[in-house]
């Protein structure tokens, strides 16, 4: 046998059983005459077997659910289920960032084309109904994640928002009017945190209650009405609290809800 003909590729293929019978015979002759090479080839064979012993047990592990559902084309529900870990991993920050950008740009847009002179508008804070309407417009169309904490965890929601706002806040119950709480979130106000509670009726119509504790002037007001594009807003000031109820529904219907909200709030 001509040993010069045996290449490194032949030796690798020998380890992997990829040679023809004739060629394998030639390689074996070569290895018989080259103990170092024979030892190397034996080491590779051992290595290959060891890798299989090390990792083959993975084949028998039960599949985690997020993988087994992917054996079928993702349906709407399957996608929802398997998206959760993804959300937890990284999308949430992106979503939050984009919502924040949307919110800030929305506010900025409103401020810039506003009736206030530009120089003054930077120094001023934007009024309650406008902030509430922007928050409503940004979050209420969100199908997947309209709220940060859902109504299933209402206790946690109340405890969390109360803690962050530094005063007890509690979502009113509007079930009698057909609106059920779906959850709430914390938002940046003019100088600190504000809370937003979101409700939905059977038809999917959403309504948000914006609660701010930033009212230093302590001037109580009666109900006031504002319209920001398609969003109607009822708002009032009660002590340090500012409330704004926003929805894309008739003024008269919204007034009914606003009255119900007002009635349920503890007045100081």
């Amino acid at each position: 046998m001509n040993q010069l003909q045996i290449t490194e590729a032949d030796l690798q293929a020998y380890v992997d059983g990829a040679l023809t019978d004739a060629r394998r015979g030639e390689v074996e002759d070569y290895l018989a005459a080259q103990p170092d090479e024979a030892e190397r080839v034996r080491a590779y064979l051992t290595q290959k077997q060891a890798l299989r012993s090390l990792f083959n047990p993975v084949l028998d592990e039960p599949l985690p659910e997020n993988l087994s559902v992917l054996a079928s084309p993702p349906s709407a529900t399957a996608v929802d289920r398997l998206r959760k870990p993804l959300l937890a991993r990284w999308s949430l920050q992106r979503i939050a960032a984009s919502l924040l950008i949307a919110l800030v740009s929305g506010l900025a847009g409103w401020l810039v084309h506003d009736r206030y002179p530009p120089a003054e508008s930077l120094a001023r804070t934007s009024p309650l109904p406008r902030r509430a309407a922007v928050a409503h417009a940004v979050f209420s169309p969100d199908v997947r994640r309209p709220v940060e904490v859902s109504a299933e965890h209402e206790d946690q929601l109340v405890a969390w928002l109360s803690k962050r706002l530094g005063t007890p806040v509690r979502p009113p119950k509007l079930g009698a009017l057909g609106y059920e709480l779906i959850g709430g979130r914390l938002l940046p106000g003019n100088v600190g945190p504000v809370a937003q509670f979101m409700y939905q009726d059977a038809s999917g119509q959403r309504l948000t209650l914006y609660v701010s504790t930033e009212n230093a002037a302590n001037q109580d007001t009666a109900f006031r009405f504002a319209q920001e594009g398609p969003v109607n807003v009822f708002y009032w000031i009660d002590g340090k609290f500012g409330y704004a109820l926003s929805a894309g529904i008739d003024k008269s219907k919204l007034a009914l809800v606003a009255t119900a909200v007002y009635d349920q709030i503890d007045h100081k």
Binding site: L51, L54, F55, N56, V58, L59, D60, E61, L63, L67, S68, L70, A71
Partner: peptide, 15 residues
């Protein structure tokens, strides 16, 4: 066909 490949994909990815 895809279900059958998942364990192999996992083994390879783990390694």
């Amino acid at each position: 066909a895809i279900l059958a490949e998942i364990p192999r994909l996992r083994r390879y990815a783990r390694a």
